[in-house]
Amino acid sequence: MSLIEIRGLSKNYGHVRALDYLDLNVDGGRIVGLAGPNGSGKTTLLRILGAFDTAYSGDVSIDGLKPGRETRAITSYLPEKTALSDWMTADQAIAVYKDFFADFKEDRAREMLEFFKLEGSQKLRQMSKGMQEKVQIMLVMSRDARIYLLDEPISGVDPASRKSILRGIIGQAGEDSLVLVSTHLISDIEPVLDEIIFLDFGRVILHEQADKMRAERGQSLNEAFEEIYA
């Protein structure tokens, strides 16, 4: 049984079909990229896996469970926009996460804060977008989760911070855990990926090992993306 098993997943937002009988199997112990143009269903898929949206049809199983309270305990979600109040400091945010998530490792969080060169006592609203993103990543990756769902972790962030964030992800992902990252900045993220999934119109059009794709196509994942979606 794969860590994530999806059969015939469909989701409509009114008249818009966000996901269209999507099938997908993903195993743990790897970093997987989720790519596709806007509206291809990346965020919708992540939200459903994160149990933030239960109004779908089809079968979704996370470690054998339907998305809900039990799966929330083993998935760690990074939303596109921060869900933290901007008057909070990193220290306060750490305290909140520590309070609610049994798998939250404070020493990891402190380590990452240092790695990102952030002040624990600085308020979020006094930070740049890149710094805020780093705080979010720090919180999400400091949980010892089985699945990390990251929605555009490096978009809208300066290039130097991007490298830093990607290193943060590499460093914290556990050996058996799955990191599912959605992004449209493929060239920045490709060296970090084990596998890549391409979505289009709510379906999976490709799911391949990164190096295998490079060997077969003689192209970078980014070039393949441009060619496929041309």
């Binding site: 112990g29 790897r30 970093i31 490298k163 990607l166 290193r167 590499i170 460093g171 992902a173 060296p191 970090v192 990926l193 084990d194 990164a210 190096d211």
Partner: peptide
């Protein structure tokens, strides 16, 4: 593997391979 992955900015499984 982890140290190398961090050092070179690549996936740990790639390093392992």
């Amino acid at each position: 593997v982890r140290e190398l992955a961090l050092k070179y900015g690549v996936n740990p499984n790639t390093v392992q391979r």
